[in-house]
Simulated scan of single mutants.
Amino acid sequence: MLVFKLLIIGLLLVIVFSLGQALFAMLKGNRNHSMTRHLGRRVAFSAVVILLLLLAMALGLVQPNPRPY
């Protein structure tokens, strides 16, 4: 369980780092499409995080909140 939590936290940090790289690429005005590459990488890592959470819920590693309010 701890390994799964560390994996999710690591992926979230990679997502934030990739978003920061896209910001700096946008501010520098790079014309070689590096900003879109970083944003695409962020979207891909976000999809991996969602799929891992769904898999963990299916396997019973993570329990969703029964009362969301």
Rank of each mutant, 00 (worst) to 15 (best):
P68G: 02
V16F: 13
R41L: 14
K28H: 07
A56T: 04
L11Y: 08
L12P: 00
P66S: 08
R31N: 10
S46L: 10
L61A: 10
L6G: 02
I8Q: 01
H33P: 00
L27Y: 05
N30K: 14
G20C: 12
G29M: 04
L52V: 08
P68M: 05
M57K: 14
V16G: 02
G10A: 12
G40M: 04
M26T: 06
G40H: 03
F24R: 13
V62D: 01
L53G: 01
L7T: 14
L52R: 01
G29I: 04
G60Y: 03
L51Y: 09
L59Y: 08
R41P: 00
G20Q: 11
F4Q: 02
V43E: 11
L23R: 07
G29F: 04
L13G: 10
I50T: 13
R31T: 12
A47I: 11
A56E: 01
Q63N: 11
M26I: 08
A44T: 14
L6N: 15
M26F: 14
K5D: 14
L51S: 13
M57G: 04
V3C: 04
F24D: 08
S34E: 13
L52S: 01
R67M: 05
T36C: 02
G60M: 05
Q21S: 05
G10I: 05
P64K: 05
L52I: 15
L54K: 12
H38F: 15
L12Q: 15
K5W: 08
L7I: 14
F4N: 01
G20R: 09
F24K: 14
H38A: 11
V3I: 10
S46T: 15
L55D: 04
N65T: 12
L7C: 10
A56Q: 02
L7R: 10
L13E: 15
N32L: 13
L19C: 08
H38R: 05
M1C: 07
S18W: 00
S34D: 13
V43P: 00
P64I: 07
M26W: 09
Q63W: 02
L12A: 11
M1E: 07
V49E: 02
I8D: 00
L27W: 06
